[in-house]
Design a protein around this nucleic acid. Sequence first.
RNA 1: CGGGAUGUAGCGCAGCUUGGUAGCGCACUUCGUUCGGGACGAAGGGGCCGCAGGUUCGAAUCCUGUCAUCCCGACCA
Length: 610
Amino acid sequence: MRVSRLMLVTLRDDPAEAEISSHKLLLRAGYIRRVASGIYAYLPLLWRVLQKISAIVREEMNATGALETLLPQLQPADLWERSGRWAGYTAGEGIMFHLDDRQGRQLGLGPTHEEVITALAADLLRSYRQLPVTLYQIQTKFRDEIRPRFGLMRGREFIMKDAYSFHGDEASLQETYAAMDGAYRRIFRRCGLRAVAVEADSGAIGGSASQEFMVTAEAGEDLILASPDGRYAANQERAVSLPPDPVPLPAGPATALDTPAKSSIEALATAHGLDPSQIVKVLLLLARFADGSVQPLLVSLRGDQQLNEVKLSNAVAARAPQGAGAVLEIAPLDAERCRDWRLDLDLSAIPFGYIGPDLSDGLLTHAGSGLRRSFLRLADPTAAELPRFVCGANAPDRHRLGVSWSDLGETPQVLDLRAAQPGDRCRHDPSQILEAARGIEVGHIFQLGRKYSDALEATFTNDAGFDEALWMGCYGIGVSRLAQAAVEQNHDGDGMRWPVAIAPFEVIVVIANVQESSQRELAEQLYGQLLDAGIEVLLDDRSERAGVKFKDADLIGIPWRLVVGRGAATGQVELVRRADGEKADRPAEAVVAELVERIRQERSGVEFGV
RNA sequence: CGGGAUGUAGCGCAGCUUGGUAGCGCACUUCGUUCGGGACGAAGGGGCCGCAGGUUCGAAUCCUGUCAUCCCGACCA
């Protein structure tokens, strides 16, 4: 391809709308243009990248025996009503674009395809003899994100590879899940990306085991906690660790403590010579469900620990009354919340800053309609395992010293609710200390179990002749996000540095001065030879000055640059590697063979441990 | 949705406080010189100043409304 025919439009200044490097570079280098918030045109250079990524994904999926398919993007509402997700995905903060057709039927624009694929499976999969089977597609997804940002990182329209597997039993599901894990590691390695697999929360999709694949980059939206030995890595939402040992409280009888104006853990600890690990802090929160009801929560944590809201939300969801629906929001109880959620609560009766785990349900008796009349009482083990501790006395300016859980009556339900922190000891090996890194989630694999097959009555006949629900897995890769993550992980002050495996072109031949016929002729000759050798090559034949072409070549990030310039007359050319700027003069007659050999090796991707 | 900011030429910005009919750099067109790291000179084209009302003799500038975009939180590939 000749650069003069490439419709290459590069920008010298960073566009004001972009914040992170990869987004700025995609715009500046002419890879994308914004059409609306979170909606982008993929220009020819990016489209080549996306096709290369897709080809790698396709090869690895096919290698696992998965079948490529293409499912509709317009999906009928009734399918989603059967899985129980229509309301949640369309009302309020729902992310599904939806519309009515001319007959007044409701349709949604697919944010994901569990419903469609499960309905198909119910239709097509009848016998255990057909199982297991995995279907996948590479297609545009639509999500009306609450806040689109960072270009392709969080778009409202994006390209995703999604795969769904169907099994007769859980062991088969686990086998395919492991095969997908392997395929994903190969995909990211072949794309030349440094990626890590981390344990993950399964979120709104549901299911049991789930693992995310993160491209490590400073601009990543997720926090990863990992052990240096490589044996443990998890999203912070899900991470577990050993908390520091608490400082024991000196023996003695339980006593009351006057603590005026000491409503924070820090103030209380400082004023009374306590360590935060000797205190139980109690958080008073409200959880709002899809049906509008509100559950008050009383969460006990050791004073030096932080709450993990994802763990809490999962715990609340698991304990939700029948029919309450999904947990929409968890927030501290305050005046603003009471007003917004129209709760008639007497806040002045609540001793904020002095709450103990045994705060009476009586405070809720006059509460408004949607509010449940008793607290859901939960405690993290760090708090529950303290034999004696300090806690609020449920009266202003009063705490209790040296109390135990038996003094407080009923013990709350105990489960892991604390946020693991960098610096914590690992559970698998206490000598390992968790380290933090940021990552961009580019893949996520789930063992869904039977959630969707139960809802959509997708059953098969087992070898004993009885019907049972299919076991399912689902597996996603953000293809367009992956392209941007590659830029985020591979760039410098001059521009992008594409790994050869996914670069839009592998080589750019730059004619330093197109006025010089010797340069033009040699460049054309090399260009032809590279094309013949099956190399994806650009020829910069524009009548620009050399400096402009070098800047553009660096910006668009082509891995190899072949400069035909002053040395052309004597048959010398310059070979430059974009990744590290290494330059070397080469005789023109030898350089094609050398490039072909190096590129052939690099096409398979970089060897990184995943 | 809550909090913050910004809309002026394709891109980056000034002008707005103190109203007088729009400017700079890059990009684009033509000519000349230059030619290995975003050249120089000359000449040119391109703007319902986001949109709609209002105030005024007169609005990019003041007022009201509205729309859009970006940033911080909840969502996710």
